[in-house]
Design a protein around this nucleic acid. Sequence first.
DNA 1: TTGACAAGCGACCTTTCGTTCACTATAATA
DNA 2: TATTATAGTGAACGAAAGGTCGCTTGTCAA
Lengths: 200, 200
Amino acid sequence: MAKDTKERILATALEMFSQKGYAGTNIRELTAALGLVKSSMYKHFDSKEAIWNALLDQMIAYYGQRFGSAENLPPVPDSLEGLVRMTMVMVDFTVHDEKIVMTRKLLAIEQFRDERARALAGKHFLTGLTQMFTPIFAAMMDRGLIRRDDPEMLALAYTAPISALIHQCDREPGQAAEVMQRVEAFSRHFVKVYGEEGAS
Amino acid sequence: MAKDTKERILATALEMFSQKGYAGTNIRELTAALGLVKSSMYKHFDSKEAIWNALLDQMIAYYGQRFGSAENLPPVPDSLEGLVRMTMVMVDFTVHDEKIVMTRKLLAIEQFRDERARALAGKHFLTGLTQMFTPIFAAMMDRGLIRRDDPEMLALAYTAPISALIHQCDREPGQAAEVMQRVEAFSRHFVKVYGEEGAS
DNA sequence: TTGACAAGCGACCTTTCGTTCACTATAATA
DNA sequence: TATTATAGTGAACGAAAGGTCGCTTGTCAA
């Protein structure tokens, strides 16, 4: 128990920043949660702001490797039911993975103070989702699964309500089960409205 | 210039809190922006937290009188084009009214720290919007303007993408014009998809 | 005219913050 | 074995935070 202190500091910083914000968190509390004394932190980071920057670096890198490269994107579903299932798997993951939940909260809190947080928030909350689903819907249109239309518009129409429900879940984690049901209900509504007749 | 200092403090607090958060704002700066000295603030509020509470009271009251009572709700559009127009008027207002923009930012920042902020954020960002549009879509279905379906689901499908675009505009105010275009494009897409054929 | 009060000022207090530094214990290295 | 780098400690520091207090001034009612 020694070498991973730097990463434990980052993990605890994510936890506390995502609850009380960067300015609302102090180093005493942060290090105390790790059984350390505040001065020990400076063996691993030059300053409080250095923690913040390292945390953002980490979040940006994670986002890039997870959603940035084409090979890590989810496969195009081969049916409307497949779209629903894929959606539920993704949402279930993103709603229950503590680290991702905290990342969203942190970005929501700091997006108006820090330029990089603003940019990453934009991706997380809107543009990244639509960019991810646009080619999926385009491909599903090509395969006759979904009515021909502007795939980017469909991506917005599909991801924004789901994203809003995920945010609701971040606010009220106790409603997770109910929110998941609403996500599935919406997803089924969507395929009912946009699905090509006869597509399974 | 004297009696309205209390309200000027609240206005400046909203401005600063919505940019740097409650914890990131200090009273010196806040009062200096008003040409005052920090001790003068305590003639109007008992503490920094009292400012925060008064601000929340004000935001909650404003929301209640603006969206809470039935008579202040927008009238049901009598055509699909009317829905688009009504939407654009509302979005244009909510995106350009400085006070409302700052309120959204503030709620985004403080929603995970303060219980009342969390509740109000839930209304602003999701539940309030759907509750507002659910009866509108129900009425438009009764009048044969929109395909019969679950009005609450349609309200989610309609308001969430628009809300997401408004948030995007809060993040990048420079994109306001472009975002407004996307809102209109989405609104027209929506009426194309859900509008009853032949409805003007 | 005078007394009371509201509003603002500047000095001061206490606490907390981020940060530094001298020091120690431990574990790996030469 | 001697040495050196690493990780942690605790005391201390300066700056900045929120908050208090006594004083002054202007306004207005009695």
